[in-house]
């Protein structure tokens, strides 16, 4: 464990909690892509099946349980409790165009052709693109609530910190997981455009709105 990984995990946790609180406090999931949240629930479920087979640390186990629990709670709030506020018309990204190729890729390119390992690989690839329905929704409506941009910023920061973590682990632990690194870099690149808007608009007190 190094400081970049720890702060990355905490940033990830902050993102998840910001989103839950936003929905809970405003009693609304307007502007939130339910599809992205379902993808994240699938990501955590398929990646953390090793909860049942291997124990790494108390920290590792508790974070996994919290991530999974929060992911399902978010999906529940969007599709059940605050369903009336869900903006389904604007959440029109075709997720099958992500899930099917990602599934195929996980079967073709993995560390080991075993059930758990393929599911882990699938979750890594899927996570790298799971935010696309949310970004698509923002580009479609042309705007995002400020709290939603804080959520996205924390999520992107988590990915950026993980890259620094991998550089650290490469030099100091000779640790190197090509699948995680490539997918992680792809995922971080997806946030670059958003980071630019966040710094130039949101941090200067303006609402994030895109030119028509």
């Amino acid at each position: 464990m190094n400081i970049f990984r720890l702060t990355g995990d905490l940033s990830h946790l902050a993102a998840i909690i910001i989103l839950l609180l936003k929905i809970w406090k405003t009693r609304s999931c307007a502007g939130i892509s339910g599809k992205s949240q379902i993808l994240f629930a699938i990501v955590f479920t398929t990646r953390y099946l090793d909860l049942l087979s291997s124990f790494i640390s108390l920290y590792n186990t508790s974070m996994k349980v919290i991530y999974i629990g929060c992911a399902y709670a978010t999906v529940y709030l969007i599709y059940m409790k605050f369903r009336a506020t869900y903006d389904g018309n604007h959440d029109s990204f075709r997720v099958e165009f992500l899930v099917v190729p990602v599934g195929g890729l996980a079967v073709l390119i993995n560390h080991d052709f075993s059930f758990l390992e393929i599911l882990w690989t699938f979750s890594i690839y899927l996570e790298s693109v799971a935010i696309l329905p949310q970004l698509f929704m923002i580009s479609k409506t042309g705007e995002a609530e400020t709290i939603t941009t804080h959520y996205l910023f924390c999520l992107g920061l988590y990915r950026a910190l993980y890259i620094v973590n991998w550089i650290w682990r490469y030099y100091f632990e000779a640790f190197f997981d090509l699948i995680a690194i490539v997918a992680g870099v792809v995922q971080t690149i997806l946030y670059c455009d958003f980071f630019y808007l966040y710094v130039t608009k949101v941090l200067k007190g303006k609402k994030l709105s895109l030119p028509a």
Binding site: S54, N60, D112
Partner: peptide, 10 residues
């Protein structure tokens, strides 16, 4: 074993 990677990251 080669394939039995222990994924210790979240």
């Amino acid at each position: 074993a080669d394939g039995e990677a222990l994924h210790d990251e979240l």
